[in-house]
Amino acid sequence: MFDQILQFLITGLTTGAIYALVALGFTIIYNASDVVNFAQGEFVMMGAMSTVFLAAGDNGLPTPLAATLSVVLVICVGIFLQRFAIAPARGASVVTTIIITIGASIFLRGLALVVWGKDIHGMTPFSGETPIHIGQATLLPQNIWVMGGTAVMVLAVHYFFHYTMQGKAILACSYNRDAASLMGINVGLMMMVAYGLSALLGAMAGILVAPISFTSYDAGVMLGLKGFSAAILGGMGNPMGAVVGGLLLGLIESLSAGLISSGYKDAIGFIILLLVLFIRPSGLMGKRSSDRV
């Protein structure tokens, strides 16, 4: 029993780490521009798919190079999204921006369908498949890659926003765009940096997880939703909340799949999310809002 639970925890933390990265991407874009980016999942899908295709075949690139190129490609997609879809719609309502990003996600999915086709693809793990045994539970090297990679990126994002001028400038834009602009911050550029960074996180998540779960042109949808759930669970706008929310959601799903029912695991995740919101309307670590009159 204990070993079984341990196994669920390992699986849960691995998917949770991916959710955390997607949620973190959501949070960065939300903080910078008040937009809930429903195309976040597509960043994940594109990262994985383009790596698979760049590394495929006899003349394929070595995986690290393919991965790097893919990340760059997805960053460009993120910047394009900001520049050509979000920036022109400034001042539009929340719902309108939601639909724009949904439109973008449909567009990117359609593009992936045209370029890469409908097939489902796998990827070779980065460092073999020899499992590490902890009691009866097994830990695959790729699990370590996912968790380690996530930890490194979370720390890097934390460092970026707290210790670099650019990171602080983005935060300034999110608090007060006009004031930031008056302080000489290039708001437009900072927005592109934020979207680029968010795309980078998404692509990395996609590449890390591809060897464990297969990827296809429509793999981004569910991941995007889960990332959004995780961000809300933790409290929209709080990066630490996003990470905690992601890990928690991963654990909840893995435990309920193992102990209750695998068919209902997603439903249980959402039910717990709803219950949390009913008790804490701004998520676990979100700021409480109050009306001023």
């Binding site: 939300y30 809930v36 929340v94 939601i98 939703l225 959004f228 759930s229 809300i232 929209m236 029912s261 068919g263 209902y264 997603d266 439903a267 959402f270 039910i271 999310l273 709803l274 919101l277 009913f278 309307p281 701004s282 998520g283 809002s289």
Partner: peptide, 26 residues
């Protein structure tokens, strides 16, 4: 559900919809 506002309300209604569609499948 309607105590929630903005993105939280969006998420909660989205979650409710997904729960129902999972039940329909399962």
């Amino acid at each position: 559900i309607l105590r929630l506002k903005g993105h939280y309300l969006a998420m909660a209604t989205l979650g409710f919809g997904i729960i129902i569609s999972i039940i329909l499948v399962q």
